[in-house]
Structure formats: structure tokens, C-alpha cells
Lab assay of single mutants.
Amino acid sequence: MIVFVRFNSSHGFPVEVDSDTSIFQLKEVVAKRQGVPADQLRVIFAGKELRNDWTVQNCDLDQQSIVHIVQRPWRKGQEMNATGGDDPRNAAGGCEREPQSLTRVDLSSSVLPGDSVGLAVILHTDSRKDSPPAGSPAGRSIYNSFYVYCKGPCQRVQPGKLRVQCSTCRQATLTLTQGPSCWDDVLIPNRMSGECQSPHCPGTSAEFFFKCGAHPTSDKETSVALHLIATNSRNITCITCTDVRSPVLVFQCNSRHVICLDCFHLYCVTRLNDRQFVHDPQLGYSLPCVAGCPNSLIKELHHFRILGEEQYNRYQQYGAEECVLQMGGVLCPRPGCGAGLLPEPDQRKVTCEGGNGLGCGFAFCRECKEAYHEGECSAVFEASGTTTQAYRVDERAAEQARWEAASKETIKKTTKPCPRCHVPVEKNGGCMHMKCPQPQCRLEWCWNCGCEWNRVCMGDHWFDV
């Protein structure tokens, strides 16, 4: 396979590697080409510095992935760790964990309700045991953590790749202090920090972006993250068709209702045909949960890209028209025109101005929308079919299609509260000796007794199943 190397943020060049090629071997190839010592090179990928003893497969490097290699003399205490030698983080029983690669970060837990604080980093599902597709590297999971809308060759929703760059020099040479644990960490600028490894760059702020994971991409090709779309790892039924499908869209209502993408497309087109989208002054033209839940309008309007190009163009047109109407304007009634106009409040005669090729020149009556006339309008008909009709959803289907309910059931079956801080902690095999993952707590306690870890627990039921 081919990976592209950008040395000291210059133009990239291809390097041929195998899945079992080590990072140090990659350094040696680059060092020979650039005429520099291999031990002064640092390989940066997806916000993480890659260790010498890791392989291309370990690092989730795919065909035509772009890695950054910078030349920086080692500072005291760094060289041993980078070589894969006596790194205290690798000691058996050590409590410190390697910062998780962005290629394996899962933010789907952050669609849980606000009262489930902490689960994004504490609760991990076991539903990723799908067998890898044919042709994928051994052991590589097909679980997708992110979804994007690819405006490039795909023109559809695709699995996405999370990447990070330095907000100062805009190069992907920043190593994160810690990985993101929720969508806010990724979507809110300057929320996460790190250290830029580019020479002479003092940058410390992280800037995240997404790429389409279905095809090789260049540095400049980015895609918009659709953070309401998630892999259906909890096997929730769709609120409309009641099938279990994946991926799904999880509405931001209190129940976190789930809808499959085909039904979401149908829901949007139906509402669009009836012009029953909601115009929100802050958000724009949007839709609420299909069950009509309060405070559930979709905030990231790129989710409506699921409509496809033709329907999305209609959505944008109707949204612009609705904006004009909300501002007190009118639409030209001549067939084939429909231009938005903003006449004076007491102006009865409205002319669709033909300047700049935008208007048709038609003069019409503001009251009856017919060709302009003197005197009273002959008839004014009330528009028919403008009443909002509820999208029919079966109550039982709505009850079963809740992301929140599956989460709470998982928590109930696989977790116990920490005796000190009461945060839910998952036990997935292993011994009875637990350690609270909350940095402010870190209590060592017994899963069996529910009390602080002691010699009695150690001698009596340390390794009970």
C-alpha cells in the first residue's frame, strides 16, 4: 500500500509500505531520502505521535493516508518512550493509558441525555464484534464512529474520518494533550489543546475536521460531520418502519427517538411537499423529531443533505422563500418566477423588478396576487391545505425507538455506581478489583462488596467470576 509523507509540512511524497511495516522502518526510509538522522524524526498522525514499535496496521493507516513527519531533536526523557523501550505506560498493571487514536474515538455516547454525564468515556458498548469485510486488514473493525456528507465523488452519507490540525499553522502536526470525549470537544473551536510539532510553531489549540472515509482524499478535501447519525450498535428499532437498520439518525429530543435514513428521507420529502418545515429565527429551515417532541429541531442543517441534490435544492429554495415571508415580504405569483420581494408595508401595487435578471417585471396586487387592478379585489380565496398535519407515529413504536432507553438498560445490566462519587462504572470481565475512572475520584473498590478495596476482598473473592 501507499502512504503519503509530508516532511516538515512540505509537499508530500509517496512511500510504499506493508501492513506489518513498523513506524521506525518508515522513519528509516524517510531519513534516507531526506539525509537526516532517523532518531530525530517524529511521525504524527490523527493528533498522535506514533511509536517506533507500532506497525502501519496498528495505527489504522489506510491506503493513501497522509502522515506528517517532522525533524525535531529529542528532548530529555522522550527518546526512550518513542523507541518502544522502557515506557512506564506499558508496564503490566499500570494505570496510565495511551491517548486514544482519533481513528478509534467514539462519540456516540454523547447523544445520551444530559443526566448521563461521564458515560462518553466510561461506558463502552460490546456491539462492535462484526466481522471485518472481505479485503480489510485482519482485526480491523467495521464499526463506524462518525458519518459525514461527502460532496465529492460519493454525493451521499458516508463513514467519516476525524482529523485534527494546529489552529495556528493549519498543519496536521499537532499532538493532542488528551483525546475528545464528546461532540462539544470536536465542534467547539479551541476547546481542546495540544502541542504543535512543526518547527518554530508555538500553536497549542486544536482544530478538528472530518474527511470522507470511503475514498482517498487530499489535504484540502473536508466534509461536514453529521453528528446525529450513528451506527445502530444498540439495535434500536426505527420509529417509523420498526426495522432494525444501521446507520440511524438520533433526534435530540428527551427520548432520543431513532429513525433509519430511508424513513428520514421520506419524512423530509413529505414535509417538504406540504411546505411544513419549521422556520426558526436562529436555526433556519428545519424539522423536529418525527414524533413531534418539543425542543427537538435539527440544529445542523447539513443533515438535510440526505435528501439528495434535487430535493436539497428545493429545500434551500423553500427556506429562502419562507425567510422572505417571515420578513413581511411577498413572492411573485407569476408561474416560473417566484422571486422574493420586500415592498413597503402599505404598498398595494407590487412590481417584480426586472433588474439584474432576477425579476420578471410582472405587476400584481398584494392582496389577491392577481395582475394589478384598481378598486376592490374580486375574490380572495383562503389558501387550502395549509394546516399542519401531524406525522403519524405509532405510540408503541415510539416507545421502542428510544436510544436513551437502550442506554439505561445497558447501564443497569453492566454497571454499578462507584461507592464514593456514584458514577456508573462498567465491568466487562476481569477481577473484582475496580478503579473509578473519574479523575477527581480514582477510588479503588470491590465490585462484589461495593466497598473500598481491602485485604478481605483480596483474599476471599479477588478473582471470582
Score class of each variant (00 low, 15 high):
residue 2 I to R: 13
residue 3 V to D: 03
residue 3 V to Q: 03
residue 4 F to E: 10
residue 9 S to V: 02
residue 12 G to E: 08
residue 13 F to T: 05
residue 16 E to D: 04
residue 19 S to T: 10
residue 19 S to A: 13
residue 21 T to S: 11
residue 21 T to E: 04
residue 22 S to C: 09
residue 23 I to V: 08
residue 25 Q to R: 06
residue 27 K to W: 01
residue 29 V to F: 14
residue 35 G to N: 12
residue 37 P to F: 05
residue 38 A to E: 06
residue 38 A to F: 04
residue 39 D to I: 03
residue 40 Q to G: 10
residue 45 F to T: 05
residue 46 A to F: 04
residue 48 K to Q: 07
residue 51 R to V: 05
residue 51 R to P: 11
residue 52 N to T: 03
residue 55 T to M: 07
residue 56 V to K: 01
residue 56 V to H: 01
residue 59 C to Y: 04
residue 60 D to P: 05
residue 62 D to V: 13
residue 65 S to A: 12
residue 67 V to W: 02
residue 68 H to S: 04
residue 69 I to G: 00
residue 69 I to F: 05
residue 70 V to C: 04
residue 71 Q to C: 06
residue 76 K to F: 14
residue 78 Q to A: 15
residue 79 E to A: 09
residue 80 M to P: 13
residue 80 M to F: 13
residue 81 N to W: 14
residue 82 A to M: 13
residue 82 A to E: 14
residue 82 A to L: 14
residue 87 D to M: 10
residue 88 P to N: 10
residue 90 N to S: 13
residue 93 G to V: 13
residue 96 E to G: 11
residue 97 R to Q: 13
residue 98 E to Y: 08
residue 100 Q to R: 11
residue 101 S to G: 11
residue 101 S to M: 10
residue 101 S to Y: 08
residue 103 T to D: 14
residue 104 R to T: 13
residue 106 D to L: 05
residue 107 L to G: 14
residue 111 V to A: 12
residue 112 L to W: 09
residue 112 L to G: 12
residue 114 G to P: 14
residue 114 G to D: 14
residue 115 D to L: 05
residue 116 S to W: 04
residue 118 G to F: 03
residue 120 A to M: 06
residue 120 A to T: 10
residue 121 V to P: 15
residue 125 T to W: 05
residue 129 K to S: 13
residue 134 A to L: 10
residue 135 G to N: 12
residue 139 G to S: 13
residue 140 R to Q: 10
residue 141 S to E: 14
residue 142 I to S: 12
residue 148 V to P: 02
residue 149 Y to M: 07
residue 152 G to I: 06
residue 153 P to R: 11
residue 153 P to V: 12
residue 156 R to N: 14
residue 156 R to G: 14
residue 160 G to S: 04
residue 166 C to I: 01
residue 174 L to A: 04
residue 175 T to M: 11
residue 179 G to E: 15
residue 185 D to F: 00
residue 188 I to M: 10
residue 190 N to A: 08
residue 194 G to F: 03
residue 195 E to H: 12
residue 195 E to C: 08
residue 196 C to P: 01
residue 197 Q to I: 10
residue 198 S to H: 08
residue 198 S to D: 10
residue 201 C to T: 01
residue 202 P to E: 13
residue 203 G to C: 02
residue 203 G to T: 02
residue 205 S to Q: 12
residue 207 E to C: 06
residue 208 F to I: 06
residue 208 F to R: 00
residue 211 K to V: 15
residue 212 C to N: 01
residue 213 G to C: 07
residue 214 A to E: 10
residue 219 D to C: 08
residue 222 T to W: 07
residue 223 S to D: 10
residue 224 V to D: 12
residue 227 H to I: 07
residue 231 T to V: 08
residue 232 N to W: 00
residue 234 R to E: 06
residue 235 N to Y: 06
residue 236 I to N: 04
residue 237 T to E: 14
residue 240 T to N: 14
residue 245 R to W: 03
residue 246 S to K: 04
residue 246 S to F: 02
residue 248 V to A: 03
residue 250 V to L: 14
residue 252 Q to S: 12
residue 253 C to P: 00
residue 254 N to K: 14
residue 258 V to H: 02
residue 259 I to D: 01
residue 260 C to A: 01
residue 260 C to G: 01
residue 262 D to N: 04
residue 263 C to F: 00
residue 263 C to E: 01
residue 265 H to M: 10
residue 265 H to K: 04
residue 267 Y to G: 01
residue 268 C to V: 09
residue 270 T to W: 04
residue 273 N to Q: 04
residue 274 D to Y: 03
residue 275 R to H: 04
residue 275 R to W: 01
residue 276 Q to D: 09
residue 277 F to C: 02
residue 278 V to K: 08
residue 279 H to A: 08
residue 280 D to F: 06
residue 286 S to H: 01
residue 287 L to E: 01
residue 288 P to V: 03
residue 290 V to C: 09
residue 293 C to D: 01
residue 295 N to H: 07
residue 296 S to K: 01
residue 302 H to I: 08
residue 305 R to A: 11
residue 306 I to C: 06
residue 307 L to K: 01
residue 307 L to P: 04
residue 308 G to D: 14
residue 309 E to D: 15
residue 310 E to K: 06
residue 310 E to R: 05
residue 312 Y to P: 02
residue 313 N to H: 13
residue 314 R to P: 00
residue 314 R to T: 03
residue 317 Q to R: 15
residue 319 G to M: 07
residue 319 G to N: 09
residue 320 A to T: 12
residue 323 C to V: 11
residue 324 V to I: 13
residue 326 Q to D: 10
residue 327 M to G: 09
residue 329 G to R: 03
residue 331 L to I: 07
residue 331 L to N: 04
residue 333 P to R: 03
residue 334 R to H: 06
residue 337 C to N: 03
residue 337 C to M: 03
residue 343 P to S: 07
residue 348 R to G: 05
residue 348 R to M: 09
residue 350 V to M: 08
residue 354 G to R: 09
residue 356 N to D: 13
residue 356 N to C: 08
residue 357 G to L: 12
residue 357 G to K: 14
residue 358 L to N: 15
residue 362 F to N: 06
residue 364 F to E: 03
residue 364 F to R: 02
residue 367 E to W: 06
residue 369 K to F: 13
residue 370 E to H: 05
residue 371 A to Q: 13
residue 375 G to M: 06
residue 375 G to N: 12
residue 378 S to Q: 11
residue 380 V to I: 15
residue 381 F to L: 10
residue 383 A to R: 13
residue 385 G to T: 08
residue 385 G to K: 10
residue 387 T to H: 12
residue 387 T to I: 13
residue 390 A to P: 14
residue 391 Y to P: 07
residue 392 R to Y: 12
residue 394 D to G: 05
residue 396 R to V: 09
residue 397 A to T: 10
residue 399 E to C: 08
residue 399 E to N: 13
residue 400 Q to S: 15
residue 400 Q to H: 14
residue 408 K to A: 10
residue 409 E to K: 08
residue 413 K to S: 14
residue 415 T to N: 13
residue 416 K to N: 06
residue 422 H to L: 08
residue 422 H to N: 13
residue 423 V to H: 14
residue 423 V to P: 00
residue 426 E to V: 10
residue 430 G to F: 14
residue 435 K to E: 06
residue 435 K to C: 06
residue 439 P to M: 05
residue 446 C to L: 00
residue 448 N to R: 05
residue 455 R to Q: 15
residue 463 F to N: 01
